[in-house]
Each structure stands twice: as structure tokens, then as C-alpha cells.
Design a protein around this nucleic acid. Structure first.
Lengths: 166, 166
DNA sequence: CGTGAAACCGTCGCCCC
DNA sequence: GGGGCGACGGTTTCACG
């Protein structure tokens, strides 16, 4: 089910809803150049086929009291598939861990964590992460400041690529 | 304007809209236990005060053809404030760079990048990032697989913290 | 995909506490 | 200050061409 299954109107819908997920369907229909009913049918299809995984309000973490953001590089003792899966499951159970990605190279996982303050994070680090089974090493880096944090994907790159292939 | 300015209903609203940003206002009102008009007034206030920065559809990057996700650790030659700002501005202008965070420790920035394929990324890496002014070193790590990718913040941690302080 | 109609929702003014 | 009620206009979402 590749992106080529989508026509230009579908891609426009995705781009618009990524930029403003609360847009009304009539506004969306106007922007993509069709009337409201077929537009809604397309949105439902995109949701059911998994192109749209959900809709989320973007909240201001700092203003809400999450002052600390940390990237943690984790090395494991065993990289057997079963052990990798166990560690991933642990990460999913930790609220402070928002993202967990398996990497190539010298480190096995990168985790993006948030916490209200440094002591909360350090408690998590020493009491949970470092004590977890199979964890060999953890190197943490504090985010000093954020310069860019765009959700989603760059649709301009997609369009460039599709028009170049055509 | 700290989180303590928010009452439990406001926090519930934020948590619900983070989980489902397209929920209707009447459904939201029902879930937080008030009627629709005051609920909508609260949402507008949360938007205007910056607690809610926007709403976005979450799209499936892989299904859309973005097969490659890469973390890049960037070291700069000069860490003077003016030079940091210039680099951050360059990152904002690159569509493939979705996130750019300044870190403490041995590396200056971490970038999260997406691309349709490896060759697109490598072109970006060699033609743009490595050639950019002031860039001293770049170490890249490919994401082999994603294990967790939750947007937003953990409201359960917020509630624990507030009830503990009370 | 578009049109039309019915049900629902967002939104406002007003009243209440 | 905040919450609830009622009403209007716009929106969602059908069935049908």
C-alpha cells in the first residue's frame, strides 16, 4: 500500500490535516478543491488504511512543567531478538520515555525522555533504566534548548520526488 | 504561567485532546464532566495561552514512502551564540531535518531526519549538512526499527506530581 | 463526485451560582 | 470568577443521482 496509491488530492488532504488537524471538513474540502462529502469519504479511507494514525493536540511541554528533555543512548549486553524485544517492552511501560528507536552502530537504542525536573529524571535513570535487565551502558545528553521540533513528514519532499519520477 | 494555573478539568482537557485531537467539543465536555459552552471556552483559553500549540494528524511515514529515519550528531567549530543561531536557522530550512536540539556534552546538536531512501539522505548529508558553515563533525545512526514513538507528554506523571505536592 | 436534507455540533447571549 | 440553558447558523453525514 505505497504512497503511489494516493492521488494528489489525498496527499493534499494529508498535508493539510498534518498542518491543522482540527480543520473542519468543509474547509478541508475547499482547500483540496472538492466538495465536502467525497472529502470526508477520503479522510475516512485514509484513516482506515492507516495513512492517518490519529490526531493529537500539540501541548507545550515546558509550560506544563516538563522542564527537562534528555536523549539517552543505551547499549545492551545481549542483542538477541528476544532480549531486544524485552527491552523495547520495558521502554513502552515507562511514561518518561516518549520515544525508543533501535539504531545501527555502536549504540543499540536511543531514547527521548521528558521529566518535570532533573531529580525526577535522575531517579528514573538510576532506579529504573540502569537497573533494567540486559542494560550494559547508558549515556545521557540534556537538551539545552530546542531549535526545531516539527511533527510528521515533509510533504514538499514527497511531491518533488513524485513529480521527478513522473 | 505554570501548570499550577490549570485546574484538574483543564489538565483533563489537555490529556484528552492530546490523545484525540479531533474529538468533538460535546464529547470532550462529556468526558471532563462539564457542559459544552464552558468546555469550549476553556479550550480557547488553553489555545490562546499557548498550552495548546496546534493540532496535527499523525501520518504513517513509512507507508507514505519515508523509509529512512536517521539521527545525526553534529559538532560545530564555533559555539559562539551567533554561530549556534546560524546553524539552527539552517536546520529549520532543511525539510529532511524534522527536529534539531542543542545538547550538552561532547556533541553540540542532535538532528532527527527522515528521507524516502538512503541515497536521498546521503545526498543531503554530503551536499548540505557536511558542507554547511561551521560544521566540524557529523556522526549518523540509522534507525533500524522504531519501538515507541508517543507524541506529547505523560499526563500521568503530571498528576502524580501534583497530588504528591498537595 | 455532487446535491439536497436531516441530525448534530460550535457558538453566542443570557441567566445563574 | 465560572457553569448551565436555549437558540441560531454552520457542519457532518446520510441517501440518491
Amino acid at each position: 500500500m505505497p504512497a503511489s496509491r494516493l492521488d494528489p488530492i489525498d496527499r493534499k488532504i494529508l498535508a493539510e490535516l498534518q498542518a491543522d488537524g482540527r480543520m473542519t471538513n468543509v474547509e478541508l474540502a475547499k482547500r483540496v478543491g472538492i466538495s465536502a462529502p467525497p472529502c470526508l469519504r477520503r479522510v475516512r479511507t485514509l484513516e482506515e488504511s492507516g495513512f492517518i494514525r490519529g490526531y493529537h493536540a500539540e501541548v507545550d511541554a515546558r509550560e506544563l512543567g516538563f522542564e527537562v528533555q534528555v536523549f539517552a543512548m543505551v547499549g545492551l549486553v545481549s542483542q538477541a531478538e528476544a532480549d531486544l524485544s524485552i527491552f523495547e517492552g520495558r521502554c513502552r511501560s515507562w511514561s518518561l520515555v516518549r520515544e525508543c528507536h533501535m539504531l545501527n552502530g555502536e549504540v543499540d537504542f536511543i531514547l527521548k525522555c521528558v521529566a518535570p525536573d532533573l531529580s525526577t529524571f535522575q531517579t528514573f535513570l538510576t532506579e529504573e533504566l540502569l537497573k533494567a535487565d540486559n542494560v550494559a551502558s547508558v549515556k545521557t545528553s540534556l537538551v539545552i534548548r530546542g531549535a526545531k521540533d516539527d511533527p510528521g513528514v515533509p510533504f514538499d519532499v514527497l511531491e518533488d520526488r513524485l513529480t521527478r519520477d513522473a
